[in-house]
């Protein structure tokens, strides 16, 4: 059974397997450095739909369809679908799942929805409450721009610290299988707020939450950063990645030589369009479901920490001049052993 360790961490005694995963992305991601790791790339930002919101739902549907196909499963085999996106009332998720007839709930934790969904799913699978869970997270550049910033055709210049929302969705199957990467522990993070108000610098807003949850996990578990091949954050981007390393250094924890960030990996950072890197639920979900899952399955990554980060702002809180509270959730993951 799941066991509480220290103040925040839950460790799993039984196997919780990341059975398989799939990811679908948009054009810019499909032309980026990780191009070969995605299952499907859609070059039309509407994906044949009338609205961007409907397009985001298609990204999720396609990711679900792909991962089910890989394991020869039907929606009937799935006990629960835990999904997350950035839109008001999670409409991308609800409109995506409504035709599948799978029991469902949505989670909101901004861009950290991928790790939150997987964390909750892992707890459910480990204690036998469900046999097969599917966890999905998505974001779409155009829906996020519409909700949080300016209309797409409005002519404005991005600041150099702003991040670009990833168009993408990742879907993961969780079960109690043996021969697959395993989730060993989960640490649900605390909301951190260092009074950053600039919505064009979300990396800076989120870095303290990531640093806090990484520190909490290491304290709770008594483990050291050098036990891991990779400490992967969700979407801190250029600025946030530098900050999380500095923040942890001040706490005497050095992750500099094993840290990477999904937001740094998904786009070509030389391109001015990608600014300070990728962001959004779809950023960590599609990078993890594609690139990272391959390395976990092949055993190239033996042990890693996956820490997805989320900026919990809303257009209302922004207009009211409030700061950006942030959160991060962490998973300890083990790759497939080849011996």
């Amino acid at each position: 059974m799941a066991k509480r360790l220290g103040k925040q961490t839950i460790v799993f005694e039984k196997d919780v397997a990341l059975l398989n995963s799939a990811c679908c992305v948009g054009k810019d991601e499909g032309n980026g450095p990780l191009a070969k790791t995605f299952d499907k790339v859609f070059y039309d930002e509407y994906i044949g739909q009338k609205t961007y919101e409907a397009a985001e739902s298609v990204l999720q549907k396609e990711a679900i369809g792909e991962v089910l196909k890989k394991e020869n499963l039907t929606p009937n085999d799935i006990d629960i679908a835990i999904m997350g996106d950035l839109l008001d009332q999670s409409i991308a998720s609800t409109f995506a799942i409504k035709d599948f007839s799978i029991p469902h709930f949505s989670v909101f934790s901004a861009c950290s929805a991928s790790a939150l969904g997987l964390g909750i799913g892992a707890v459910l699978v480990e204690n036998g409450a469900v046999n097969l869970a599917i966890c999905v997270a998505s974001s779409h550049f155009c829906t996020a721009e519409r909700q949080f910033r300016f209309p797409l055709n409005y002519g404005s210049k991005r600041t150099p610290n702003s991040q670009r929302t990833v168009t993408g969705a990742g879907a993961f199957l969780l079960s109690s299988q043996k021969n697959a990467p395993k989730i060993r522990a989960v640490t649900f993070g605390k909301v951190k707020d260092y009074d950053i108000t600039d919505a064009n610098n979300m990396g800076a807003a989120m870095a303290p939450a990531a640093a806090d949850v990484i520190k909490a996990f290491l304290q709770d578990s008594g483990k050291k950063p050098d036990e891991y091949d990779l400490i992967l954050t969700g979407d801190l981007g250029v600025i946030g990645s530098k900050l999380v390393i500095k923040l942890l250094q001040k706490e005497g924890i050095d992750i500099s030589n094993r840290h990477d960030d999904c937001g740094l990996m998904i786009f070509d950072l030389e391109d001015e369009k990608s600014a300070a890197g990728g962001s959004g639920c779809g950023c960590s979900a599609s990078v993890f479901a594609g690139h990272i899952m391959r390395k976990l399955k092949s055993g190239e990554i033996k042990k890693m920490l996956f820490c997805a980060t989320g900026a919990l702002l809303s257009p209302t809180s922004q207009n009211q001049g409030l700061s950006i509270p942030s959160i991060a959730h962490l998973l300890e993951i083990e790759g497939v052993k080849n011996d």
């Binding site: 210049k157 150099p160 610098n201 800076a204 303290p208 900050l243 001040k250």
Partner: peptide, 23 residues
Amino acid sequence: MTNKEYARLVEKTNKKSNVLKDC
């Protein structure tokens, strides 16, 4: 770390716009 100390750290880390080029 206080909010002020963090704000200073962020300020040091941030990329600056190229004001001259933009102008």
